[in-house]
Design a protein around this nucleic acid. Structure first.
Lengths: 128, 128
DNA sequence: CCCCTATGGTTACTTTCGATAACCTGGGAT
DNA sequence: ATCCCAGGTTATCGAAAGTAACCATAGGGG
């Protein structure tokens, strides 16, 4: 029996709201990191799990399934021994790179300001 | 006693990864919707909860606290009776709008393709 | 007076999800 | 047979999302 159904990606359907929809897709924190890695070129499962610091095998599996389901990433089994599985961005996946890069650039630029805001909020809250 | 601590935003600290960091911030699906609403202008709590379909009072509170903590949204109590609370984007919040809009535009443009990909993936998976 | 509306939340509780560690299958080397 | 690697899957737990109900205040209707 194919056990993949047990781990199948959530099938929450759109909410008449495309932003929510795309966020449900890439907002899970690992998806973006995986896509950023794959934007450098195709990569195998364990290679991804080594290079994406902190991700577990399970979350990598789940994340890749999500991305595969949404057509952002392709999965190719290579006829080697033992078989290797190569993941790569699809054209659709590449088309998302611009948005991701915009987001990343904003994040990098404003990280210090945000951290300051957080510290001052936490200080006020803890004190008050 | 100030009960706000009980509902305080998570204080997960950065991971040496700005993209993860920004995604932890705005990736929770409600944050983006709240910011998109506030980008139209300041708004009060209950007005937000009415216009953002599906959000509960609690999640709106939590989301607004997160955004406030990160300096993306400001909170102003108006001296009316009963007191009203107005939320608005800060300049930092406005600076994120470009990235959000890029993301939203991508989402709107590619939603049909993604839905097709999902349907065909689901069909294949269900068929076995 | 009580009941209903509205304001902006909070509290307790349930359900769902993210994440970790451990396990599995199968081939090759020793 | 035993150990490794590949690429996952399973069981489990804690945190987070979400729901329903409550609080305090003020105004209007019966």
């Amino acid at each position: 029996m194919n056990a993949r159904a047990d781990i199948a990606p959530g099938r929450r359907e759109s909410f008449a709201c495309p932003i929510r929809d795309v966020l449900d897709r890439i907002g899970d924190a690992w998806s973006l990191l995986v896509m950023l890695e794959l934007s450098k070129g195709p990569c195998r499962f364990n290679a991804l799990s080594r290079v994406i610091d902190g991700i577990s095998r399970r979350m990598l599996t789940v994340t890749l399934r999500h991305l595969e389901r949404d057509g952002l990433v392709s999965r190719t089994v290579l006829p080697t021994s033992p078989p290797q599985v190569e993941y790569a961005l699809t054209p659709l996946g590449h088309s998302l790179q611009d948005a991701i890069v915009t987001l990343r650039d904003w994040a990098i630029e404003h990280q210090p300001v945000i951290n300051d805001a957080r510290r001052s909020y936490d200080a006020d809250t803890d004190a008050g």
